[in-house]
Design a binder for these strands. Structure first.
Lengths: 219, 219
DNA sequence: TTTTTAGTTTAAGGTTGCTTAAAATCGCTT
DNA sequence: AAGCGATTTTAAGCAACCTTAAACTAAAAA
């Protein structure tokens, strides 16, 4: 499997997970930062290999073999992220970019050494589940979007979705971290923004766009 | 820098180090397992970029900028090898192949995190020196080829040069390891083979070809 | 139903890094 | 000094992955 193929399949998987909607060529092209034509090309090729269900003008769906490849790469990505963060003490902001490269050049054997070293973890430092070798995904019971928490209710941040360097920077700026306790003060239906209270009493308004990447567990 | 460019420069450097003789296109082609024509192509390209001193029909020499690239890759390779061996407890036989891939996809920042984690080491698990960031190479004072040791003299193995999976397997088979004590029993000028005694009295004859990869320190 | 338009596919072409095969050059031997 | 064998370069071409631009489709709007 080449890097391009791996990345293609991985992003079909992730895009579908994150949006919950069918993956179109243009979505994927945007995410991979390549032309739509290049997506069509690759999709047809992977279709022929039985990795992708490709039918002209239809949404892209992973076939079982393709999903297996995707999950393996996601596993490697998330294990690397945790390793870089926990063991090498790298900045949470850099681990994504590093893992993005390493994931494609890591043998299964090396990955299992890292897995063992980490003690077979279930979640990466952003709170995302690490798929198992068999493809099983650790459950995130009770984890919901911040917007699902009612006003005046408290919650524990369980997952801060990585979008790009900017989101990470904003998390940092606000002091948002996995495990932190937040109280939802007010929701503003007008623009979907949410006011929360940090431990210590500091109150902050989070934009809808940012809040959509914040997951937590009701308390 | 692409992987191919990195590998090209690295192997010009290593080939020159190991043989001590000028690096020809065919030598390099053999080592990189690509055609001689491909070497010429790349050499001309790197010449134009000021990385390599390329003149038709002449031996290949690194220019300062190219040597810098080469040393950086060698540094990354050897740091990774040590890390995989010491921290992740991987097999000495596999670390080379893994490092061969990782070295090209590791940022300077990540590398320094690993360097720090390892305590700024000077030698990799095969005993090869790890170039510093400035390109300084830790000295290997007193390290000589096994054949330089006189008969009836003892020495400590300092370095077992990695050639391929087979050499590693042979080291294993014989029980050759960095730090082990050997006594040279006899040298056979006929075929260059060397008879050595292991701790415990076991005596073994090593072929010239194998012995040429064994370095040690006189005792 | 027809038209519009957003989205997708096809077509033609570029770059990188490789290949094989033919031509050129080097430098040694006689 | 000329020729020969070994090495290197040039030439032509291929596969992967990408591009832009033109042609096409599908599904919503008129």
């Amino acid at each position: 499997m080449s890097v391009s193929v791996d990345n293609f399949l991985k992003n079909v998987y992730l895009l579908n997970q994150e949006t919950g909607s069918p993956v179109t060529s243009s979505h994927l092209a945007g995410r991979l930062e390549i032309s739509v034509a290049a997506v069509t090309d690759m999709a047809r090729k992977l279709g022929a290999q039985g990795l992708l269900d490709y039918r002209p003008y239809k949404a892209l769906t992973l076939m079982p073999a393709g999903k297996e490849v995707a999950l393996k790469i996601v596993r490697k990505h998330r294990l690397w992220e945790l390793f870089l963060y926990e063991v090498l003490k790298m900045d949470l902001m850099s681990v994504h970019e590093e893992a993005e490269k390493l994931e494609h050049h890591t043998s299964d054997d090396l990955m299992e050494h890292i897995n063992r070293f980490l003690g077979h973890p279930d979640f990466d430092p952003h709170g995302d589940p690490i798929p198992g070798i068999g493809g099983r995904i650790p459950s995130e019971k009770g984890v919901v979007l911040l917007r699902e928490i009612g006003e005046e209710e408290a919650c524990i941040v369980a997952k801060l979705r990585y979008r790009n360097a900017e989101t990470s920077e904003m998390y940092d700026r606000f002091g948002l971290k996995k495990g932190i306790r937040l109280k939802v003060v007010r929701m503003f239906p007008f623009d979907g923004s949410i006011e929360v209270e940090f431990p210590g009493g500091r109150e902050v308004v989070l934009s809808e766009k940012l809040a959509q990447n914040i997951f937590c567990i009701k308390q």
